[in-house]
Design a protein around this nucleic acid. Structure first.
Lengths: 109, 109
DNA sequence: AACTTATATCACTATACGGTAATATAGCTA
DNA sequence: TAGCTATATTACCGTATAGTGATATAAGTT
């Protein structure tokens, strides 16, 4: 592992921060492999329109989603598939962690 | 990919949030494979003692580090190696992203 | 042109959280 | 016991940001 200067740490932290909000995760998970417009995402997530637009803007700036304008609608799609890898790693880790705790209790009672 | 309820999203977001701060990333990167006590981490990172203690407490609660008390010192170690996998994925993604932008400029000038 | 629809942006509030100084606590030492 | 050292905790401040209502902008429709 190489040295990490403060600027690099900042970049990495920023990337993780984008995934550190339930609403943004919900957007990404709702998008999945498909393309969806803002209204569809608003309907699917139950969040406010301004809220979804703001989050999409942040994800777009980071290159995590792409945007395709078509008439009145703005269509978004996940552009960085590694996001799903990250979520997968976190998910399975959380699962094993919870299983371990469960077993700890099971051994006692 | 399964459905994700709001509670699960919260758990995943919380995990990412722990990695969304440069100081915590610095702690984890400084620890690496070794065991270090708080004073060593304070010296190595240049952060304040209270600050390091607080961050270590958060990482400990999440099970990302483990703690071994020995006399006066508290010795920490990374307990969840998947953290490094996550950082690796983010790092290489950022790298390719920057390379792509660099090439875009190179094609123009 | 007037109107409607879809999205983005602005202004604002509330909350969460990182950093820090001061203090508490626990274990070692003389 | 008194004092010293390492760490944890508390209280506080400042900042960042999620959410929201109102508004702006842009594109389609009549």
């Amino acid at each position: 592992m190489k040295e990490l200067n403060d600027e690099a740490l900042e970049l990495i932290a920023n990337r993780f921060r984008l995934l550190a909000e339930p609403t943004r995760l919900k957007i990404l998970h709702t998008l999945g492999e498909d393309e969806m417009n803002v209204s569809q995402l608003v309907a699917a997530t139950g969040a406010g329109q301004a809220n979804i637009s703001k989050h999409l803007g942040a994800l777009l700036d980071a290159g995590i989603v792409s945007r395709r304008k078509e008439g009145l609608t703005a269509n978004y799609r996940v552009a960085d598939e590694t996001i799903f890898d990250l979520c997968e790693v976190v998910c399975s880790r959380l699962k094993t962690q919870l299983e371990t705790r469960q077993n700890v209790l099971a051994d006692i009672f």
